[in-house]
């Protein structure tokens, strides 16, 4: 059977530096996979290669068996991969509704359908009351949810979340975790999430992939992976790893 999503020997270099170095992984349909690793491990670069911002030097990105490596971002988006950004990037001078509409119109030409779909998503993310507000005037947590709404409006089958929780407080984090889980349950979206908040990673991920210096160094169920010496070493340095 063709796996839902698969990366084979992916490599992306900036000058001499391999930001993503020979990374392979497989994700099954409906899975939530956590992607962790210290800063500079290559997680965001990996996202950028998957979504077409960068073309890889080598390797394949297979969505349902089809190689999408090197396609333009708008093509990849049309094929069903959505993403959010580590640093929120809503179109700040557009209203909340317009932000989502921009994305929704990529799926339909009908004004009615687009608006319905957009409102539906805003309700889902509890942003419907803010629909006429300018995106610039939202709180950080709301902006993060708007990012998610925008990504969902492109009707992805596979969603990449880049540190959706960073900068949120405890209550907000719990709420967002719930949202992510609902995205999978209610909308059937497969998710790959870069996350630093370990509590959240443990809670939502079916599986965790660990990257360091561009390489995949570990993979497995969350509880197991965080105990692996190489993971501890990557996070905390050599001294702790040998201790």
């Amino acid at each position: 059977m063709v796996p839902f999503f698969k990366i084979e020997h992916l490599e992306k270099r900036f000058g001499g530096l391999a930001a993503v170095n020979n990374v392979s992984m497989t994700i099954g349909e409906g899975e939530i996979v956590g992607l962790i690793g210290p800063n500079g491990a290559g997680k965001t670069t990996l996202f950028n290669v998957i979504t077409g911002v960068y073309a890889p030097k080598r390797g394949k990105v297979l969505l349902k068996g089809q190689d999408i490596a090197g396609l333009k971002p708008e093509r990849i988006c049309a094929m069903g991969i959505g993403r959010t950004f580590q640093i929120v990037k809503p179109f700040s001078s557009l209203t909340v509704l317009d932000n989502v509409l921009v994305a929704a119109y990529r799926r339909t030409a009908s004004r009615q359908e687009a608006t319905d779909a957009a409102m539906d998503i805003l309700r889902f993310l509890a942003l419907d009351e803010k629909s006429a507000t300018l995106a610039a005037h939202l709180t950080l947590a709301q902006k993060k949810r708007l990012e998610m709404a925008r990504a969902l409006a492109t009707r992805p089958i596979f969603l990449l979340l880049d540190e959706t929780l960073a900068g949120l407080n405890h209550t907000e984090i719990d709420r967002m975790i719930e949202t992510v889980q609902q995205v999978r349950e209610r909308r059937g979206v497969t998710i790959l999430a870069v996350e630093h908040v370990m509590r959240a990673v443990m809670k939502i991920s079916d599986r965790v992939v660990v990257m360091d210096e561009g390489k995949k160094i570990a993979e497995g169920p969350p509880e197991e992976v965080v105990r692996k010496p190489e993971v501890i070493k990557a996070y905390l340095g050599d001294d702790y790893g040998s201790a």
């Binding site: 911002v53 971002p73 708008e74 988006c77 179109f91 994305a103």
Partner: peptide
């Protein structure tokens, strides 16, 4: 406003 984000929205 944001060319990269727009591209990822499928524009």
């Amino acid at each position: 406003q944001d060319r990269e984000a727009a591209r990822l929205m499928g524009i």
